[in-house]
Every structure is written in C-alpha cells, then in structure tokens.
C-alpha cells in the first residue's frame, strides 16, 4: 500500500512475506473458483459411462456430446430464447432505468425523494417473495407461458435506477443548461448530452443486467410450462428430470452457455470492474 522510499533495495531483492500470503490466498481462491468450471468442461468431453469416474482429464475425450446437444433442436431454441430475452430486457433496462434515474437526479419536483425511496425500498424485497404476486399477476393477465411473462418483471430495475442516478448526479448542471440554451428539448438533452457522459455506467449496467438475465432460473421456471419457451438454464435443468440425469449433456450445455458470458466479460472487463468499484464506493 504505502511506498517505503527509505528501503528501495528491499523491494527489489526480497519478496515480502505479505506478498506470499496474498498470492497463496489468491491462488487457492482461483483454484476453488476454477475447479467446478474445469470439471464441467471435462465432464462434457466424457461419455455417459465415464461420468462417475472423477478424473479431471478424460481418458477418451470426444466432442460427441457437443454434436449431440447442438443438433438437438431444443438446445438451440433455448439458447436463442435466452439471447433474445436477455437482450431485450437489457435494452429496456438501459433505456428506462437511465431515464428514471436522470429525472430523479436532475429535476426538482415535489415528491422526488419519496419516489426515489420507494424505488430503493423494492431492493430490500427478495425475489422469492415477489414471485407469488408476479405469478398471480401474470396468470390474471394471461401472460403465463409467454415471452412477455418471462421478461416483464425485469424490464425496469431499482438497482439500475439507483446506479444510474449516482452517475447522473456527477454530470455538471452546466452541461445540461448549455444544451437548454442551445435549444435542445429535455429528451434530447438526456439522449444527446447526459447519456454519452455516463457510458461507463451504462456499460456496467448492461453487463450486470445481461448476465443476471442470462443465468436467471427461478422466475422463468415458474412462469413457463411450454418447453419451447424455456430459457437455457431452465432447459438444461430439464435434462435432469426428463429421463435419467444425463450429466454429460447438462455439462455440455452449461459449457456452451458460458460462452456468451465469457465473451461479454472479456469484452467489457474494464467496465465491469469500474462499475462494481463505483457502485461500491457510491452505495
């Protein structure tokens, strides 16, 4: 942490004990995190008979499971369902969360604080409690077994509003006033001036939302019965109940399912880190 200019030689010649401890802890943490993933991938390369011999490196690795899963029409259907739902929900969140957040951050109107607190307070209610009212609502409105039914609870999120509001508050009012004088209407000020100034936050929110919806299991499971509407996690879990548990196929599907998240993470990595950091600092 603090540099010690009085002992510059020590830093070069010796590795401090603190470093060793830190590396050891990080290494162990890395192993703990990676093992399930490696096992998942390893299992996906095994045949059904080899699943229960717990070797990390399969004796006879093959991509047969991948061919099987990918040629099964259901998997690609679920995959596309997940991509479509996660994309639409993410775009919706980016638009509506930031619009609400901007209004709360930059306009003074009666009840502003109350509205914000009401939105925030929904963060304190666990999903498990919300699922029943959501389901009742969905069933009354005929949304069960529809894509809309899967998506509607997530189209605007309190977390996103909160995150974006913190960022919009850092945008100087002068920017908005200058645009107002230049003749932009309020929507254009938000769209052309305010939003481009908070792109790091938008990226972070996009990643959080996409990942959250990509892995969502509980609600999609409850609101769908038609397997054609399943998202990937729900679909994969059905491998476990329909016939005997086909671990090698589940693991193959799961391996494939990590690809988009991995791509998004690698692509937006710096924004994720910044987003988490800022959410932490500001929250």
């Amino acid at each position: 942490m603090v540099d010690q200019p009085a002992q510059p030689a020590r830093r070069h010649s010796n590795i401090r004990p603190g470093r060793i401890v830190a590396w050891t802890v990080l290494f162990l943490g890395g192993v703990v995190m990676m093992t399930p993933l490696l096992f998942m991938f390893s299992t996906s390369l095994k045949s059904a008979g080899q699943v229960y011999d717990l070797k990390l490196i399969p004796t006879d690795p093959s991509f047969a499971n991948y061919i099987k899963v990918l040629s099964d029409g259901r998997f690609s259907r679920w995959f596309l369902n997940s991509v479509g739902i996660a994309t639409i929900v993410t775009l919706s969140c980016l638009f509506f969360d930031s619009l609400v957040a901007y209004t709360l951050a930059k306009f003074r109107f009666p009840g502003r604080q109350v509205v914000f607190l009401a939105i925030l307070s929904t963060l304190m209610i666990p999903t498990e409690m919300l699922v029943i009212p959501w389901y009742l609502m969905a069933s009354k409105l005929g949304w069960v077994d529809t894509y809309w039914g899967i998506m509607f609870p997530g189209l605007i999120t309190a977390f996103g509003v909160f995150l974006m509001k913190q960022f919009f508050e850092t945008v100087p009012d002068d920017f908005l006033e200058a645009a107002r004088i230049d003749g932009l209407n309020e929507f254009a000020i938000w769209w052309k001036v305010a939003l481009p100034l908070v792109t790091p936050a938008l990226s972070a929110l996009a990643i959080f939302t996409f990942l959250g919806n990509w892995t969502a299991f509980f609600w999609p499971l409850i609101v769908t019965t038609d397997s054609a509407l399943y998202t990937l996690p729900v679909g994969l879990s059905s491998f476990a109940v329909e016939q005997s548990i086909q671990w090698e196929l589940i693991m193959t599907g799961a391996s494939l399912a990590t690809i988009p998240t991995l791509m998004i993470f690698l692509f937006f990595q710096r924004y994720i880190v910044r987003g988490v950091m800022l959410a932490g600092v500001k929250g």
Binding site: P172, D174, F175, E177, A178, R180, I181, D182, G183, L184, V193, P196, L197, T199
Partner: peptide
C-alpha cells in the same frame, strides 16, 4: 420565454463543452 426562444448565448464557468 424558454431559454431557446430568447436567442441569447451563454458561456459557463466550467466551459460546458462536451467531452464526447
């Protein structure tokens, strides 16, 4: 009148030029 209908221009303390 709204600012845009007054046809005045304003220069702000922190310049208010857009970084993007």
């Amino acid at each position: 009148h709204e600012p845009k209908h007054r046809n005045i221009a304003m220069v702000f303390q922190n310049y208010a030029i857009y970084p993007h």
